[in-house]
Amino acid sequence: MVTMAARGSRLKGLRYAAEGRGFLATLLISPAVLFIAALVGAPLALAVYLSFTDATAGSLTGKWIGLGNFRTELHDPVFRGALWHTFLLTAISQAIVVVCAGLLAHGLMRSFRGRWILRFLILLPWAAPIALTVTGWYWIYGAGIPEASVLNWFLIHLHLESATNVTNWLGTPRAAMGSIIAVQAWRTIPFATVIFLAGISSIPQEVDDAAAIDGATGLKKFWYVSLPLQLPIALVAVLFGVIFTATDMIVPYVLTNGGPFNSTQVLTTWAFQIGIVSGNVGQGAAIALFMLPLLALVTIGMLVFARKAEVT
């Protein structure tokens, strides 16, 4: 009788502990945290370690060579080019994205006839797998045969270029860079547009009404009322775009693979080239690590803006 009661209360105690908020929360969250620690945290630490070694393919360890890899890279014109191209590509494509997505979001704000299908068409570049669609772009750019590019067909028939001297979209440095920027902008615009739209629709109607009563209209209202309220969420979308673009490998890899003459080499393709194709794992890790400062900056920015968004 006594033991039964004791067991009962112990069970109750156990059950109480299991129902306790702290315990249950820890239990529910820990698998996710462990998984992430093992598959993101540990490899990240390993990447940092590898970058200080001369590890090659086939071995996980190498001789510690301190900053040797970083020194080699900073003196390598190809790497410096890659760093510059990564910056250029990201900055230009995302500037295009902000302007286009801003316009589009305002166009799509109110409901109108045919909005559903138009939104679907605009969303396509983001919804379709980029690894596949970039292959489509490779063909649109002529796939190494400029005469086959449909873009050149348009330019010729608009009399913007002559049929005998067509643009080699992926074969000349400047055009190749432009081609990659266009695809990166193309695929990020839909994402930025829908996030901008969410930002606009999160502004309460009361704010609009109050602004109207105070006599704010048109551009003035946009600049002093709508824009500041949308800014935090829009900035988060932009920061996402920056990360997606700067750390993306598929678009430059499929379109040019860094060519012609390394003129479109970016950090990711160069890290792949050195780390996997050439098998210098340590060196490749050092190249990829140059993305970390950017990630840190964007992360801080994101935290600041997320907090701001919460306040407003």
Partner: peptide, 23 residues
């Protein structure tokens, strides 16, 4: 913690593929 977990989504495969390929 939620924001922390989310931020790990931003660590790109292009940064982790070399160590992970060895693992």
């Amino acid at each position: 913690l939620g924001v922390g977990i989310f931020l790990t989504y931003l660590v790109p495969p292009t940064l982790l593929f070399l160590p992970l390929s060895r693992v």
